[in-house]
Simulated assay, not measured.
Amino acid sequence: MTETPNPNIIDADTLTGEMRPIRRVVIALGSNLGERFANLQGGVDALADTPNVWVTGVSPVYETTPVDCPPDSQTFFNAVVLADTTLSAHRLLDRALAIEDAFDRLRSDVKNAPRTLDVDLIVVGDRRSDKEELRLPHPQAHERAFVLQPWLDLEPDAEFLDRGPVAELLAKVGTDGLTPRPDLVLEIE
């Protein structure tokens, strides 16, 4: 994935005059605790309310079987958000974590514990990071149908940075465990 809509478009910071490129981002949302749909809509709203983030698309909602979660985990609602931003990847990560906290996400040592809201950065333009706090592109997303299918719904020709076409990745992974929920439609304010 390259910087979009046009890598030559620059946004000037109104206070400092600093020029910042606009980057296309893919953000995955998930919830399997509480009011799952309301949590997803709240995540979309919070992203749309973020300065220097412009939400351009929201995928259909899928109900999905938990992957690599503790036994007895409830099913998830998942969706993908496309946005353009001038924020750095680290600032965007800070915002994602703040949104999770606003929805009372409890963090634990249990891997993939149930959560009210998960906000994952999948790709941020063509940025790469292998730091503990920020891995870009997301290291498992290319193996997760609950990310790939909603992303493909929004961008049929999407390319996953360093991995290839999203359609080909989804064909390898398959769509077992995904149930479309056309009765649930996320809105962009």
Rank of each mutant, 00 (worst) to 15 (best):
H90Y: 08
D49Q: 15
L92K: 05
R95W: 06
A158W: 05
L136T: 00
A167S: 12
T179V: 14
A79G: 08
F146T: 01
D72V: 11
R91A: 15
T86E: 07
T16G: 06
V147Y: 02
I22F: 13
A79I: 02
D120H: 02
P180Q: 02
N112P: 11
V44C: 13
D45C: 14
T179N: 13
D183I: 01
T179D: 08
N52L: 12
P137N: 05
G43Y: 07
A102F: 04
R95N: 06
T116N: 12
I188K: 07
P70Q: 11
S73A: 15
D130P: 01
T116D: 06
K172S: 05
G57Q: 04
A89G: 05
E132R: 13
N78Y: 08
A38Y: 02
N32D: 08
S59Q: 03
P51A: 13
P60R: 09
V173N: 04
V173F: 07
D72E: 14
A145T: 00
A158I: 06
P180T: 01
A79R: 03
D183V: 02
V58L: 12
Q41K: 13
R181G: 03
R23S: 12
K111Y: 08
D49K: 15
R24D: 10
L33Y: 11
R36Y: 05
L152F: 06
Y62S: 03
G30R: 03
V110C: 09
E155C: 12
P21R: 14
D94N: 12
T50Y: 11
R135D: 00
E143S: 13
S88E: 05
P156V: 03
H142R: 09
L170N: 03
Q149V: 01
G34Q: 07
G177I: 02
S129N: 02
H138N: 06
A46R: 12
G30N: 04
E187H: 12
H142L: 07
I27G: 11
W151C: 07
P165R: 14
N39S: 13
R127G: 03
A141I: 01
E143W: 09
D11I: 00
F160P: 10
F160V: 04
T4I: 12
L93C: 03
E159W: 12
E143A: 14
A171I: 00
L117R: 06
H138C: 09
A48D: 11
